[in-house]
Design a binder for these strands. Structure first.
Length: 419
DNA sequence: TCTGGGGTCCTAGGACCC
DNA sequence: TCTGGGGTCCTAGGACCC
């Protein structure tokens, strides 16, 4: 049996752990630059605030219902996620961390255990040790565990936040209950097409022929169908090193000057390179893009992008920044108002398996330099040592007016308890 | 004024090989 | 009437996830 464990309204719940007076009150968490709603407490959902709501369009609603608004605090969420995962790990022989707030557990060889008892214990222990509410779904396949989890989340009182799909009867009942657009792996496009052929529920989907599903939804669709039939087909996945690393941001205002954009692009590449070294890889190529604000029909639009193949694999910040700056020169056009840019590094190889080239290679002296740089920045805080080409004035420029303290990752932000 | 960020996988079609 | 057959690799675009 598999379990899918999912934290309820995760970001909102994290904020609530340290502000217990907000229990029962509507909370929303905003994206970077305080742009859009990316998490909502149940109370906020009930008021009718949709996912992705644009913050400035909902200001009045926030005021009217006294919605507590938070800027995203990813340091807090990442740390809370880590705590939850480390507790879950103790319950099953195998775990796959699927996202910041979800994990699959595989209970291989645990046939003697009473899953309901185990599930209840997960819920109460995570709640007690971290303050985060979770839901648990058990089933014979990953896709069905997702379904079971949804039921647990939808009916927390009846299920005690833990639902099990094991019998054929419970499987059919669950699939007939689940709308097709809510099935894991069925997005908007597939839902539309499925609707056209009369598929309304997950059960209807399982009645389609493999051939039709293969033709219209590729092998992924076929795997999903079998998983929903109760034949475990979607496997547990190992934690693989990343295949690409992205750093991109919308700017808090439009940027016009090359130098301004360059500063940002350099910083994005610095951040990518740090993550790249953390997984002990070098990259062979990167993609650089910049764009104007596509929401503004009144302004002239431009999207520039370029794929750069490096002459040699590298993870040196100095080298990568150099190539990024050169690449930016080729796509930057004067006269546009830029709203967003980003760097995606890819084609990784392990650091210790770099093939030397005949004419040009990564500067070997950079290796030690980067090691020292990473050590200093780890010890003394991010961006303590910067390149001259980065912006020297401030680290964060994003609009983040309602950010909560980093309660669990910064000593200055620890909560005080007065007895 | 104001609209997120970071990933993965699959497929079709073109270019190329012998 | 008829124009070989069997491959690989790469890329862009589309779909999905959180």
């Amino acid at each position: 049996m598999y379990a899918l464990v999912d934290c309820n309204n995760f970001y909102a719940s994290c904020e609530r752990v340290f502000r217990p007076e907000l229990i029962g009150k509507p909370i929303v968490v905003l994206s970077n630059n305080d742009g859009a709603v990316i998490a909502r407490s149940n109370e906020a959902k009930e008021i009718g605030i949709p996912m992705g709501a644009v913050a400035f369009q909902y200001e009045q609603m926030f005021r009217e219902h006294q919605v507590e608004v938070f800027s995203a605090n990813f340091a807090l969420y990442g740390d809370m996620s880590h705590r939850v995962m480390s507790i879950l790990q103790q319950f099953a022989p195998e775990m796959e961390i699927y996202s910041i707030d979800e994990a699959f557990l595989l209970f291989k060889g645990c046939e003697k255990f009473d899953l309901k008892v185990l599930g209840d214990k997960m819920v109460s222990q995570v709640r007690q040790w971290t303050g985060i509410p979770i839901s648990v779904g058990f089933a014979p396949s990953k896709a069905l565990a997702k379904v079971a989890n949804r039921i647990a989340k939808k009916y927390p009182v009846q299920t005690n936040s833990c639902h099990i799909i094991q019998s054929e009867e419970s499987r059919l009942k669950a699939l007939k209950w689940l709308k097709i657009e809510d099935v894991w792996g069925v997005g908007r496009q597939h839902a539309k097409r499925l609707c056209h052929v009369g598929v309304k529920t997950a059960f209807d989907f399982t009645q389609l022929s493999d051939a039709w599903v293969r033709r219209n939804m590729s092998v992924l669709g076929v795997r999903l169908k079998h998983d929903l039939l109760g034949i475990p087909t979607i496997q547990m996945e190992e934690v693989n090193p990343k295949k690409s690393i992205t750093t991109s941001r919308s700017f808090e205002r439009n940027l016009v000057e090359f130098e301004e954009v360059k500063e940002r692009v350099v910083t994005f590449m610095v951040m990518c390179a740090e993550k790249l070294r953390k997984q002990n890889s070098c990259c062979n190529s990167f993609y650089l893009f910049l764009k104007t604000n596509s929401h503004r029909q009144d302004l002239e639009q431009y999207r520039g992008a370029t794929l750069v193949n490096l002459p040699y694999p590298s993870n040196s910040t100095l080298e990568l920044v150099h190539f990024a700056t050169e690449a930016l020169k080729t796509i930057f056009r004067k006269g546009f108002r830029y709203k967003k840019a980003g760097v995606i590094i890819m084609d990784f190889i392990p650091e210790d398996k770099v093939q030397l080239t005949l004419f040009e290679n990564s500067n070997p002296r950079h290796h030690e330099l980067m090691k020292t740089l990473d050590e200093v920045n780890t010890k003394l805080g991010q961006q303590k040592i910067k390149l001259a080409s980065q912006d020297q004035r401030r680290v964060w420029k994003m609009k983040q007016e309602k950010k909560s303290p980093s309660y669990t990752t910064k000593v200055q932000d620890l909560i005080n308890i007065v007895v």
